[in-house]
Design a protein around this nucleic acid. Structure first.
Lengths: 153, 153
DNA sequence: AGCCGCTTTGCAAGGACATTGCGCGCATCC
DNA sequence: GGATGCGCGCAATGTCCTTGCAAAGCGGCT
């Protein structure tokens, strides 16, 4: 991928916030002809700068009213241990985010649940069943203050 | 908003993963005529079930190579304290996510930075400057294992 | 300075697409 | 049983996306 110029950055800034904007309106906003804009966007997509488009669905419309932050420690940091854990955690659809971390815990997870009972099920059937786990620490989000799709550029 | 039926759910499932899909292809995937599909999607958007569409931009294409998870404790839980902290944290463009939490820390943040030097700047100019903060604990993500845009439905 | 090649732009055309009105089928309720 | 409302498919029209093509900007080189 070549370097991004000011026009590319402007395109990215718009489509981050308005992913389903028409090419015509996008072109107008950034001051370019629709054809040039379409070609630039095409390059951004094919070169992997734009990795996808996603609709954001109201969590409570789907009855997901709870967010838990889960800190997990494993029994070791061997590559095999990490690989097996990660393969297993990827299968749980309720895990939205998972990072391998520095610091006190090995992994940090963001988990969506419909309610406390649902979370208890997830904890029992999924999280506790993950391999090599020696400690699980769940905290619950009381309120979402910020949830940006991307860093403001 | 009325209840979501199986077709609505199917639509949501597709557009969560393919936010820029054409209405024609969406209709074909879920087995509906384009007109009916367009009308359903319109209802889902106007009723607030679909809250927006966003392009996902490769973080490293923008040179954001670091993700920090920051735990923050405040000096108290008075409403005024929380409100002032939240107003301030919302201004920092590097803070992608912020939750008010139960548990040991009051807030948990996901912060994007270009590199360690950039994070040092964010920490100094933004995080340390947030009002009522008494403790900041930063951990760094070594690797992103999962980052789903939405819960799998 | 002038030339040349590369890149990117704007324009135009044709083909696809989104949207809206309309009539029909189906279920519900009186 | 008839009326009513809801959601569907079909068709048409206006918009939009895309691609070919020529010209303009830009940098390097002589």
């Amino acid at each position: 991928m070549s370097q991004l110029d000011a026009i590319d950055t402007a395109i990215l800034k718009v489509i981050q916030q308005h992913g389903r904007i028409s090419n015509a309106e996008l072109a107008e906003r950034i001051g370019l002809s629709p054809s040039a804009c379409s070609r630039r966007l095409d390059i951004l997509e094919k070169s992997g700068v734009v990795t996808g488009y996603h609709a954001r669905v109201s969590a409570k419309a789907l009855d997901y009213k709870m967010i838990a932050i889960v800190h997990i420690s494993l029994s070791g940091q061997f590559a095999k241990t990490l690989t097996e854990f990660e393969a297993a955690v990827k299968l749980c659809p309720n895990v939205l985010v998972c990072y391998l971390m520095s610091g006190e815990y090995d992994y940090i997870l963001r988990v969506a649940a419909k309610d406390l009972e649902d979370y208890e099920r997830i904890h029992r059937d999924w999280l506790s069943a993950l391999p090599h786990v020696v400690k699980i620490n769940s905290s619950f989000a009381l309120r979402e203050v910020i949830d940006r799709p991307n860093v403001g550029i």
